[in-house]
Write a protein that binds this DNA or RNA. Sequence first.
DNA 1: GCAAATCGAGAGCACTGCTCTTGACTTGAG
DNA 2: CTCAAGTCAAGAGCAGTGCTCTCGATTTGC
Lengths: 233, 233
Amino acid sequence: MTASRTARERARTELTREIVEAARRRLATEGAAGLSLRAVARDLGMVSSAIYRYFPSRDELLTVLIVDGYNALGTAAETSESDETDYAGRWLALGHAVRDWAVAHPQEYALLHGSPVPGYRAPQDTVVPAMRAIQVYGRLVSEAHRAGAAGTPVGFPDPLGLLAADAERVRQVMPGTPDGLVLRAVGVWTALFGWIGFELSGQFEGTLLERRAAFDHHLHCQATLLGLPAGAT
Amino acid sequence: MTASRTARERARTELTREIVEAARRRLATEGAAGLSLRAVARDLGMVSSAIYRYFPSRDELLTVLIVDGYNALGTAAETSESDETDYAGRWLALGHAVRDWAVAHPQEYALLHGSPVPGYRAPQDTVVPAMRAIQVYGRLVSEAHRAGAAGTPVGFPDPLGLLAADAERVRQVMPGTPDGLVLRAVGVWTALFGWIGFELSGQFEGTLLERRAAFDHHLHCQATLLGLPAGAT
DNA sequence: GCAAATCGAGAGCACTGCTCTTGACTTGAG
DNA sequence: CTCAAGTCAAGAGCAGTGCTCTCGATTTGC
């Protein structure tokens, strides 16, 4: 019951939310490195020390932004799914959903998949939201395999037994899939983010101009590694 | 002739080099965000304002580190090549060389392929060194295609004519290759860096433990997209 | 009604990038 | 050799940062 809360409690949750929103606005324009607590405080008309009543440190505020980012990306991934049985289509939709969100929120995306800071250790709060996107992917791969739509193309190297334990751990997000598919799926997943990283860091500037079409082709090519039928593009 | 230079000139080039080396040491431990001009000056026993006699700003010093990083990565890529005609082997060697360098110099790698800072625009000095690694790759793809070793596997989507102009631009680094191979090669290149990014940002922590073997398998799988023969792994 | 908890404001500390001035030194031309 | 011009390190100083502490004012719950 929000009505039973005291005025002070309501004001606190409200101001906490406002701080996060102001921080997110600053993050979008200045980037993570330029996000200043004092600037956020100025935007809200308060003094910098007042922020510390709500967040114990700048890192904690950044962590909240990271969790929000993972959740936003996870929601985008979860709502991307199209026709249940069109596994190639689901892969394309998922890939485009991730890229669309990244292009729309480059600084937040950089916060999630950017350069790691030596001292920074990801708090426990971030791991669950961080899993949402890859779980959508794992479900897709798992279901495609169960439906026989993710056939193993010939000419693929079988992973060494050395990787069996690693594959077993990854299989938690894509149950029932064989080692080869599991490991290929990990590689395809990194290929998705590798492309987005190139695009966001401007490495395609002046070279690849038809970004969406080129990315779509990239998704089609990577889909063949999963054995998903590659449509025309 | 270095002997003809005055003592002041020799001292200047020497101290410039020492500043860069001290900055690189700090970069390795503190990361790019924590690289402080004053700390570098303290390491060298000088006062912070003296640094500005050698580098007009912190960004300029970072740019020198970036150029050095691209050159080191480029050298690693160029010296990786093995048997001329074993194109799959050359691809594996190139991939491992890039990853080995990245793992050995994570902070420098993050400087090259990390989160872009909103305001920062890559100076012209960086573009030529930045091309060295991908030119090794382009030469490999081009020669493999010319030798008939990079056959186009069936079941691949042909890129739309929309991407012809983009492919033409990329073809500058891999002459003589058809549009489909060019675009697939770009995707494979990003897949290489995508994997490294995952590994360096700790996303494989506790999951993929056999890093080198898993990466090797990733390289084998991506090689099939280029039509290179996939050996056993 | 009142003690306790909570809050915003402000001063202050140590740090940062960067600028400016000052005095000592080196250089190259006369 | 002389000496003006150029170059240098050092220090003070400015504006900004994250963060801590204190001090009143307000709100809470007993």
